[in-house]
Design a protein around this nucleic acid. Structure first.
Length: 290
DNA sequence: CCGCGGGCCTGCGCGC
DNA sequence: TGCGCGCAGGCCCGCG
């Protein structure tokens, strides 16, 4: 489900609800999500001060007391709901985890497909253990640039689209934003990652950032499952150029075609195509992306 | 070591 | 209307 922008939005919404609070009561309604909950999960989680909630790639980390980090991934279908102290909570199907916070607020984790997970990790191990030990740079971090991207892509013989989904290359990119960033950069998704020119690396490093930032501004992308913590929808899905737009006219082609003397008013330009790479759909413009 | 395909789950939309 | 199939934003594992 959520890629970096969606996770970051949820993190920002959780921060004021969690900071300075404790989880007074943790209720698990299921044995596990993607992985079983550890046996002492509730004992460890309850009663500790929440000192911080941050994000790395598509993972949130809730820091509990001095020694523990709760690593939280939303998988494909995970949703987080925040209830203010005065708000009524009506349990619904797939509400797997419930927290009652000091001060009376409640947090609920709902995940129909259960590809998400919560794992407790000792803080001193956090960055030294997977997935963080092998994770690539934060694309919205100040240090991210074309040199870092080029270094990660150098000599790689996998298609660039597949490389962008590799969290060791850049953290937080998923299928939607990989498609969109390649489209904006004018790079064909089947190009081998190591074959990009200097200019293409520059362009791609730039469009990765710009696409993610625009999605953040728009409140994320809501397809099937994603909701903000109050249940509302993001609207970046209305701004997709190629993702899930197979057969539609490429916006760049249409814009260019409309300026030409022989252009007709609509239907100008190449149709967006879908192909399957490593078992996943890729959307692209065969004319704009070389 | 790398890349690919399958598996994990449930829900939804589509075609018959 | 109802049913079966394919597909879905992610990630891990095993195989070649």
């Amino acid at each position: 489900m959520p890629e970096l922008p969606e996770v970051e939005i949820i993190r920002r919404e959780l921060e004021p609800a969690l900071s300075g609070r404790k989880i007074e009561r943790c209720t698990l309604n299921i044995e596990g999500l993607r992985y079983p909950f550890c046996a002492d999960f509730t004992r460890i989680v309850e009663g500790k001060d929440i000192t911080k909630i941050d994000r790395r790639g598509k993972y949130m980390r809730v820091f509990l007391g001095a020694d523990h980090a709760l690593v939280w991934h939303l998988g494909m279908s995970g949703r987080v709901k925040i209830f203010a102290p005065s708000a009524p909570y009506d349990p619904v199907k797939h509400d797997h985890v419930h927290w009652r916070l000091s001060g009376g607020g409640q947090i609920v984790y709902n995940d129909p497909r259960r590809f998400g997970f919560m794992q407790l990790v000792p803080v001193q191990m956090l960055e030294k253990s997977p997935p963080f030990s092998t994770m690539g740079p934060e694309p919205l971090g100040n240090s991210f640039n074309a040199d870092m991207l080029r270094a990660a892509l150098e000599n790689r013989k996998t298609p660039i689209k597949i490389a962008l989904l590799d969290q060791a290359v850049v953290a937080g990119i998923g299928n939607i934003y990989a498609c969109e960033a390649l489209y904006e950069a004018g790079i064909h998704p089947a190009r081998l990652a190591g074959s990009l020119s200097e200019a293409e690396n520059e362009a791609l490093a730039h469009t990765i950032r710009s696409v993610l930032l625009k999605a953040l501004d728009a409140g994320g992308s809501s397809l099937k499952d994603y909701r903000k913590t109050d249940g509302s929808l993001g609207y970046f899905q209305h701004m997709f150029s190629v993702y899930d737009r197979e057969g539609e006219i490429c916006p760049k082609c249409a814009a260019a075609g409309n300026g030409r003397k022989n252009a007709v008013k609509s239907g100008v330009g190449a149709q967006i195509q879908r192909m399957v790479q490593a078992g996943r759909s890729t959307f692209y413009c065969p004319s704009c992306q070389k």
